[in-house]
Design a protein around this nucleic acid. Structure first.
Length: 99
DNA sequence: CATATGACACTAT
DNA sequence: AATAGTGCCATAT
């Protein structure tokens, strides 16, 4: 079956385990479309599978949270709730093997 | 088909 | 370090 770009994004995001985060870039690479980071963000913004897909676990490549459809503040809260420590509006990507 | 938009990333200043 | 400007790609209109 033909998966649209967005669906690929949701699939990749779905793999992100609880308590962990991934970058938009990470997703873009995972779906074999590096450079489509923007489109990835777009897909997650639309994200019709809201809670089903942990879109809140996707952050910027520089460690900042990025955006969130329900409000940036909400995103931070959700992440902290899952055990992700956020310092000065930033996340240690190194801690997750990214950066 | 062309233009505009966006939850990014990178480089230059 | 912080702030602009540029590039990039998939959708929506």
């Amino acid at each position: 079956m033909m998966l649209s770009f967005n669906e690929k994004v949701y699939r990749a995001a779905k793999k992100i385990p609880r308590g962990k985060v991934a970058t938009y870039q990470w997703i873009a690479r995972k779906i074999n479309n590096p450079g489509s980071v923007r489109a990835v963000g777009n897909a997650l913004h639309k994200n019709p599978y809201a809670p089903h897909v942990p879109c809140h676990r996707v952050v910027c490549s520089d460690g900042r949270l990025g955006g969130f459809a329900g409000g940036a503040g909400k995103k931070e809260k959700l992440l902290r709730r899952e055990g992700v420590s956020i310092k000065n509006k930033r996340i240690d990507l190194l801690k997750f093997g990214l950066g």
